[in-house]
Design a binder for these strands. Sequence first.
DNA 1: TAATTTTTCGTGTGCGAACACGCAAATATA
DNA 2: TATATTTGCGTGTTCGCACACGAAAAATTA
Lengths: 359, 359
Amino acid sequence: MVRIKDIAKEANVSEGTVDRVLHNRGGVSKKTEEKIKSILERRNFSINPVASALAMKNNHSIAVLIPEYNETDSFWKLPYLGLLKASEEVKSIGVNVTYFKFNQYSRESYLETFNRLIETKPTAVVLVPMFLQETNLIIDELKKIEATYVFLNVDVEGVDSSAYVGQDSYMSGYIAGKLMKLGVPNGFDCCILQTSTSTGDNQAILKRVKGFKDYFNTSQDENVLHELKVDSFSDDVQLASSVHQFLENNPNIRGVFVPSSRISAVVDVLSDVQKQSLCLIGFDNTPQNVACLKNGTVLFLISQKPFDQGYEAVRIVSDHLVKNKVLKEKLYLPIDILTKENVDYNDANQLMFEKDLNQ
Amino acid sequence: MVRIKDIAKEANVSEGTVDRVLHNRGGVSKKTEEKIKSILERRNFSINPVASALAMKNNHSIAVLIPEYNETDSFWKLPYLGLLKASEEVKSIGVNVTYFKFNQYSRESYLETFNRLIETKPTAVVLVPMFLQETNLIIDELKKIEATYVFLNVDVEGVDSSAYVGQDSYMSGYIAGKLMKLGVPNGFDCCILQTSTSTGDNQAILKRVKGFKDYFNTSQDENVLHELKVDSFSDDVQLASSVHQFLENNPNIRGVFVPSSRISAVVDVLSDVQKQSLCLIGFDNTPQNVACLKNGTVLFLISQKPFDQGYEAVRIVSDHLVKNKVLKEKLYLPIDILTKENVDYNDANQLMFEKDLNQ
DNA sequence: TAATTTTTCGTGTGCGAACACGCAAATATA
DNA sequence: TATATTTGCGTGTTCGCACACGAAAAATTA
């Protein structure tokens, strides 16, 4: 590893001078500056971030505002694990990450948790902007203290943010449309199944639906696209009756697209015959969904790569804080197509980390 | 932030003593140890990882043996970039990575390059085991100096390694089979197109073909599977004549599977009508292949995630060296299904790194 | 009690970079 | 030419921790 000392020796100057050109602090003659710069280039020097962090007494802090999770509602576990993994890595370069979890169904919890967060005076914030109105309040506060903030998983239109880390929802829906066309024989229909009222992330769901429809409309083959809206995915009985009635009225349907993460709930109310004959496509690798994928009921799941979202969010923010890298406005993660066969490989990374965590 | 110095003062001992109990190095009386431990607990002390990392100055070295690349044969560029990215990250924790590139078509180059590598006495080696016989010689040498070594991209049967980082070739072929079934209408045929002689990574290709065939055989629908072997993908004229003749003799064919990374060469010799009517599935996101994907000629590409392979290989080895983490024997990377629509998102990571590199 | 061994602990140096202080050389002013 | 001012640069200290060396204190032996 090349050190400042090495560069200084080679240039016949002192370490202080090298330091000056590195941080272009001025006070160096043109000639020696050029000389040093060329040596830096040639030796491919880069500042040792660890020593730098120590000397600077770097104490960046990233605060994360994220929904809490439990067994039944485990979607937010994976982003959290990804955040944790990155946190561990950046600790050694002087970046500290703290977590604040809120109830994703409560606006009050969202705001109240943020208020606790802001008291710790973080240098940067990663947040999941669940509620539009409250998010605007939050952004105002963050601007006051000049904290950089990035949105995680949920992209809010019309609110300016430093960056967004997540999926391109429109395109993921578009791809779902393509896969659906492949899975449904020509001449048959399919339908989009969603709740009439949605919480928080409905922005993403709307965009997925739009992408899905757009693919259907641009494609030559003629398949009719139906829509079914249900009250809730949690009420088994009602869901079952809605779905059965709908399928009876539209016997030509061979594909069902569920743009939320709840396709497993739909599978639970289908008969064996229906499971066999329908091409089911949904979102997110929750344990329940993965189970449906593995037993062959669901043909494709589209993954948002939640683990990677958390990981990347912390990485880009800390690179920004420590190395002054510019924040890319939109960091779109890969749109993963999961099948029965490849799903295990996709989870390997996070599983490995989880295992390490428990030791 | 509480420092060792603070603890020492409070306990009326020197920093050295606190250090001893922190790392239980021994040589501390029971009484003072207890006292210090309780203070550590009470003050909620934790080692400053930044200072710790700096002071430890780990000095591990990883040597990488990998094929060289150029414009026409660019496959190995991406693993190399991934290796580079990881190298940068681990530099700050005292791990140094050096590269040794060989000509992938020359056994002599392979061995000769390794000999240069081994002279640098690395603590660990990442290598692409191209030639079986020579690899055995290499492994013998590595065992002598007790270096840990991991295989990258190519998994060699019957040779024991510390670990393998790459794709599960069998399963990736299996998935290609599934996708092919989706893309080819019932009642039509498809074919596997490969060279009769293959170099280096033919192990992987054989396994892919096996997986592909297995999916076809287990599936209920009846599609006939043909096989076409050509002399070389580089000889346009001959390739064209072979392919055209074959397709004329088998007019029922609607799908072509190319288990190597050269599907773009096949596309180049197809007529527009053939491009329209055939379902083409291949491997690897080389620039040429990605172009075919984007213009709609190729329906799916399966990616080996070459960038990630390089990245992960260095990461797991350095985690092993620095943090004593156990090496997982097989680190299978996700089997990525690439389409026209999602391919851009999949490359984003490596593109970003490449851009940073050029600044 | 003196000599020796063992236990227990303090001191000092280095890791690589950041930055303040201040001296010498170069340039400007009288 | 002597003095003042700027410019260019070297030196020394600090960050918090790891680890080696060796000294004082305690325990053992003669």
